[in-house]
Design a protein around this nucleic acid. Structure first.
Length: 971
DNA sequence: GCTGGGGCCTAA
DNA sequence: TTAGTTAGGCCCCAGC
């Protein structure tokens, strides 16, 4: 175990005498010793282990029950507890028993062949088994009593203290009271820069690592311990940071690895370090044969290794990733964390920093990095400042988002180690909770057979889900009350005692008293809690009780650090409670049980139906206009005031709650007033929780909150909704839309607002799609920077050739900007803006919605000649007179316009001056953003609207000054 | 021009 | 070696 003492010294605790084990149901007549011998012999014969090795050290008979099914009379069952010397062989031993055919000697000397047998808990991780048995949860404190441990003399690790202890002597503490606070874990945040060949994205086989910037910052401290940047070649001094320069790359790498060992962080962080910085460094060091570089872990002489992984889940999507063996340090990549926890349009460090920290960073394109490196110590300093910022931002994000605090609390609440929260999915949390609770009451968890890839699983839904009430679409000027079931699925599981351990199989139903049973609407039977309380019920009750307590403590807490810990805890408890239902329904999981999940949703469907009936029965003139899963939206009648609506909602929630079993609770939470209901899962309204002032505008499922359209659409829809709901001014909404349409058709909209981004989710697609086709195109342009699976691909739709399909007209926004490729404005209007606008205006407009899209404002302005494709290739661009656009051969004006030269010249000059001003103000804005008004702006941040405007301004300015120069009046 | 299904993303 | 669930809207491609 790696950790810290109260005084802040780092400690490695080496735990001895804890052996892994699992269970097997007893076969009559087979003695434990004989079973142990048979298994060991089989392992020798199979040459799994050499003959001098004893794998199974002990088998004993214990009395337990399986967690699966309630059996009439709830009889105890005998199991062999099979203990192994080394957990590594658990799988081999379990497999021998599962397959059957093991020859075991009976006491009467007859040899019996074991049948195929189910094993129990052999897949439980050894580490988790240890923690459960000792009562230890992740990120918690433990005591080693004086005299019960020894301090190791010959250390094998980098930690300050190394201790040997017997597993039985460890005293674990619940993270409460005195043990609530967390240890000040040391974080090292780093970022690398690399460059070599011009214009090519760096590859570790060819391109050097030129800088590594670092922040060492203990969690909970106000200031960093160190800010260090390692550079290749000299670098001018940076105030507040240490600069260490090397002439040779091998030395640089070796020195950084030494720095890691010296600062010895508990947590390694950064942005995309898992899939870029760390693999790059390890590959590069291998290439250069820097032997001591991989020694980044805390165990002396144990190098860090890396392997590629591919994780996919419906929750996180598919991601190709890397796994590292780095003992004693948790790799906490902020990119990974943020993609998991937040749904954003873009996950670039820039965009994420803007979103959460309100600050941008200079985004230096990789092609410029090489030039800065090849310059002098000043340009390298420039790069180092940039690199340091990239190392700082991840720590800032971690603190701002409370990521570490929240994750540590999640580790405590679910009992798993911190690192697992980053490297594994949601299921492991429930597995841990299930094992912990089961262990206390002698229930065993079966190892379920893995069905093959095409086995039991399959693609479609495995059971019926929730009800979505058919919406009465429209715009409601009356207040709409919303009633919600609080924690619906957890409360159903508790109310009906749904659990693995309470499920009764059909064959046993006849042997049970009917009054002990309840049958769910989906047909499964469970025993009532008076007979046996389910494990899931217990887990959920404890989670919810703990959450109540955490919220209470949070209110009472004065210290902001403790407040954040407690807030993290109540959040973790809520997430964990909600994960239980999903776990039972995860068909490819550790312990799926469709009877539980299908019953849960079936009860839910019944409850929402009943709620609706009750509301409409009890309140004359009330209608449930919509509802989804756990909520109903009620219109109590015409002309009701907000106060009345709230009072009725309150009353209805209270009254109707009583018809459901405890702890189910229907709550009145809010009113929508006014309310726009577009369709199932799509609505918007002003949300009121008091009668004084609305809380906010709430949008669900509408384009304004979706990430699969461009910002222009989201912004316009948001504004329209604001006009309609807040100001209730249809005319203003209409004129705003007309203005946007007019701007769009006249090319006045920023490219950044037209960028669409979609996730690349797989490799083989059936149909062609814009983001997929573009990703392929980009791969051909530059394989190094092309989007990978799991990335979001940004694009704009260009004009392209005539009749060219939309998917092949998608183009990289930066590419479009640089080459001045025309954008298909009409496509944006007709295919992206029109339908969403129609859907929103339709319920509120008396006249035809079509009027929005015809008229003066839809006049198109002629656009620049396409530079590529179409006929442009074959036509030579001819000069045109700047006065009357007549073709001319040279100069600025045709013969007719020459007399007015002074006038035309002044006009063009004024235009140029105006553009110059616009450009320079954008330039200043960028300089301000990068925090340096003395240097060139190097930023090319594809997420920043200013960047697009600045580039566009530059292009326009160049065109204008080109025109002015054609007059040949060089002053 | 219509329809079905793939794909994406969201609600809960 | 690993992955929480179903319901549902809507855009676009592909095929007729």
């Amino acid at each position: 175990m790696f950790g810290l003492t109260e005084g802040g010294s780092s400690v490695l605790v080496r735990v001895h005498h804890f052996y892994h084990y699992f269970y097997l149901p007893v076969t009559d007549g087979i003695q434990p010793e004989a079973l142990a011998e048979a298994i060991n012999r089989r392992l020798w014969n199979d040459k799994t282990v050499p003959r001098d090795r004893t794998v199974v050290t002990n088998v004993e008979i214990t009395t337990k029950r399986s967690i699966m099914y309630f059996i009439p009379g709830d009889p105890e069952v005998k199991f062999y507890k099979i203990t192994l010397l080394n957990p590594r062989h658990t799988k081999d031993v379990a497999r021998i028993l599962q397959r059957g055919g093991l020859s075991v000697k009976k006491p009467n000397d007859v040899t019996a062949k074991l049948p195929e047998l189910p094993t129990f808990e052999s897949t439980l991780d050894y580490l988790l088994r240890f923690m459960i048995e000792v009562g230890l949860v992740g990120c918690s404190w433990l005591t080693l009593p004086a005299g019960k441990y020894t301090i190791t003399e010959h250390k094998k690790s980098l930690l300050q203290v190394e201790i040997d202890v017997h597993a039985n002597d460890i005293i674990a503490h619940n993270p409460e009271g005195k043990w609530l606070r967390t240890a000040p874990l040391r974080r090292l945040s780093f970022d690398i820069e690399c460059a070599g060949r011009k214009g090519i994205f760096p590859e570790p086989e060819h391109d050097k690592v030129i800088q590594i910037a670092n922040y060492v910052w203990d969690h909970g401290h106000k200031k960093p311990i160190a800010q260090v940047v390692f550079t290749l070649k000299s670098c001018a001094a940076i105030v507040g940071a240490d600069v260490v320069s090397y002439e040779n790359e091998e030395e640089l790498l070796s020195a950084w690895a030494r720095f890691v060992r010296l600062t010895d962080p508990d947590i390694l962080t950064g942005y995309n370090i898992v899939n870029f910085d760390l693999p790059y460094l390890l590959d590069r060091a291998a290439q250069l044969k820097v032997a001591d570089f991989p020694l980044l872990g805390r165990m002396i002489g144990q190098p860090t290794t890396m392997r590629k992984t591919r994780m996919s889940s419906s929750a996180f999507g598919t991601h190709e990733s890397h796994a590292f063996s780095m003992h004693g340090r948790v790799i906490f990549d902020m990119l990974q964390l943020i993609t998991r926890e937040y749904k954003l349009r873009s996950y670039s460090l820039n965009s994420v920093s803007a979103e959460f920290l309100g600050q941008q960073k200079e985004d230096v394109h990789y092609s410029i990095i090489g030039d800065l490196q090849r310059g002098d110590e000043q340009t390298r300093r420039r790069l180092a400042v940039y690199c340091l910022k990239d190392a700082l931002l991840p720590v800032r994000l971690m603190d701002k988002l409370m990521s570490l605090t929240n994750y540590m609390e999640m580790a405590r609440v679910t009992g798993i180690p911190l690192g697992w929260l980053v490297s594994r999915g949601h299921m492991i949390k429930v597995v841990s909770l299930l094992h912990r609770k089961s262990h206390l009451v002698d229930l065993l968890i079966p190892d379920i057979k893995r069905s093959g890839p095409e086995g039991g699983g399959g693609d479609g839904p495995q059971f019926e889900g929730a009800t979505v009430i058919k919406p009465e679409k429209g715009y409601y000027k009356d207040p709409i009350a919303t009633l919600d079931f609080a924690s619906l699925y957890p409360s159903i599981i508790m109310a009906h005692n749904l659990c693995y351990s309470t499920l009764v199989r059909p064959v046993h139903l006849a042997h049970m008293k009917p009054e002990d049973l309840s049958k769910s609407p989906s047909g499964a039977s469970f025993v009532k809690r008076s007979v046996k309380k389910g494990i899931l019920t217990k887990i959920l009750e404890e989670l919810l009780a703990a959450r109540k307590q955490a919220k209470k403590d949070l209110k009472a807490a004065k210290d902001p650090f403790l407040q954040s810990v407690l807030n993290g805890r109540q959040l973790a408890l809520k997430i964990s409670a909600n994960a239980v239902y999903g776990f039972t329904g995860a068909s490819v999981g550790k312990l799926p049980c469709m009877d539980i999940s299908a019953s849960t949703t079936a009860y839910g469907r019944q409850m929402i139906d009943n709620t609706r009936l009750e509301v409409e029965k009890r309140y004359k003139g009330a209608t449930v206009i919509y509802g989804d899963t756990d909520s109903v939206m009620i219109k109590f009648g015409n002309g009701k005031s907000l106060e009345e609506c709230m009072r009725l909602g309150e009353e209805a929630a209270e009254a109707i709650s009583s018809i459901f079993p405890k702890p189910v609770k229907l709550e009145f939470e809010k009113c929508y007033y006014p309310y726009l209901l577009i369709s199932k899962k799509r609505y918007a309204g002003l949300l009121w929780t008091n009668t004084e002032k609305y809380d906010k505008m709430d949008c669900k499922g509408i384009e304004a909150v979706r990430r699969d359209n461009c910002r222009l659409v989201a912004n316009v829809i948001s504004s329209v909704l604001e006009f309609l709901l807040k100001k209730r001014d249809l005319q203003q909404a209409i004129s705003m839309v007309k203005k946007v349409i007019s701007d769009l058709l006249q090319n006045k909209i920023d490219v950044s607002l037209l960028v669409v981004s979609k996730s690349l989710t797989k490799t083989d697609y059936e149909n062609k799609q814009a983001h997929v086709v573009l990703a392929e195109k980009l791969r051909k342009r530059d394989p190094g920077t092309a989007p990978a699976i799991g990335d979001r691909v940004p694009y704009v739709i260009t004009k392209g050739r005539k009749n060219e399909p939309a998917y092949s007209r998608a183009e990289d926004p930066l590419y479009v900007l640089e080459r001045n490729i025309p954008i298909d404005n009409n496509y944006y209007l007709e295919n992206m803006l029109r339908k969403p606008l129609e859907r929103i205006f339709e319920p509120v407009m008396k006249s035809s919605v079509n009027s929005l899209f015809v008229g003066e404002h839809t006049r198109t302005i002629s656009v620049v000649t396409p530079k590529k494709g179409g006929m442009a290739k074959y036509t030579k661009v001819r000069l045109k007179c700047l006065g009357c656009k007549a073709p001319i051969n040279e100069g600025a004006l045709c013969a007719y316009c020459v007399p007015k030269e002074a006038e035309h010249y002044t006009k063009n000059l004024n235009t140029m001056v105006k553009l110059e001003k616009a450009y320079s103000s954008l330039w200043t804005e960028c300089q301000r953003c990068m925090g340096d008004i003395c240097h060139d702006v190097l930023c090319s941040n594809g997420d920043c609207p200013i960047f697009y405007r600045r580039r566009k301004a530059q292009i326009d300015l160049n065109a204008a000054s080109e025109k002015v120069s054609r007059f040949g009046l060089d002053w």
